[in-house]
Design a protein around this nucleic acid. Structure first.
Lengths: 142, 142
DNA sequence: AATTAATATTTGCATATACAAATATAATTC
DNA sequence: GAATTATATTTGTATATGCAAATATTAATT
């Protein structure tokens, strides 16, 4: 059954979740080459882009909760992709050389992913959808 | 930081997830009065609407995996909201009287929820967004 | 300076979800 | 009718995520 044929297809809860799950699946495929989940990959991209970035900034940028960010960092630490230094109440997260080596491949995955859905949906339509999802998310605040 | 200001706001993965999480939060609030999570509530609504419905039909309608559907039903069974009868390889799920009593309240929650986001986003805009999310989900198939 | 309040981070616990394998049954094919 | 294949459901296990409480540290107030 298509999403649009479900009895609940008029419901924002149903639709946003169904879409997110399908996109997630596509994303997981895209990041398989680097053996990272999409969230881990995005967090690592942030760290590579801004070495020393602090968890709270990651919370802000990735819109996840502090505890989730801690857990993501922990896993990347296990994988020797980042290191953490704690001074006082602040923590800095730095990429390891291993992560830096991976950077080009990571960017490749980002590109592959966006091409994957642009192919299916059309570049314009997907861009428009992203903009309007963001607008709505903004309005829902916090 | 607003969703639209994140470094990743152009990415479908980020945006669809951020939106789904925010909507989920709103939905959880809306179904607190009946002490059910949104997924449980929707499954129960299906069962009330179509007593004896089989798990596979729920998989189809709710677009979740079979295992997730099993788990959701189990929990509703614990709560004495549904009963399962298994004959051969098929299972039928029926609402209990307790669930039937709850039905009006459940529908009330659905309404509250949709009013909640319609207020924030405008009825038209939210309807449009839902339609286009469904369209995209359809195209992503499977 | 001492107390209080605010902030950053981590931990313990709970939940929803999925995948893959296991089970059980029904349908098909030979 | 026996063997194979397909289908429905459940189970075991793993993951991502969140909330609330715990820690630790800094800032503000008195």
């Amino acid at each position: 059954m298509k999403t649009s044929e479900s009895r609940f297809c008029k419901c924002m809860y149903f639709s946003s979740n169904a879409l997110a799950r399908k996109i997630e699946k596509l994303a997981i495929e895209s990041w398989k080459p680097v053996n990272l989940s999409p969230s881990h990959a995005y967090l690592l991209l942030m760290v590579l882009d801004e070495p020393g970035i602090q968890p709270m900034a990651l919370v802000d940028e990735l819109q996840l909760t502090p505890s989730t960010i801690t857990r993501l960092i922990e896993k990347l630490e296990e994988k020797k992709m980042v290191v953490r230094t704690t001074e006082g109440k602040l923590t800095n997260v730095y990429p390891t050389p291993k992560a830096k080596d991976l950077q080009p491949k990571l960017k490749e995955c980002v590109k592959e992913f966006s091409e994957k859905y642009a192919t299916v949906l059309g570049a314009d339509e997907s861009a428009r959808l992203v903009v309007s999802m963001n607008k709505v998310a903004d309005k829902l605040g916090r």
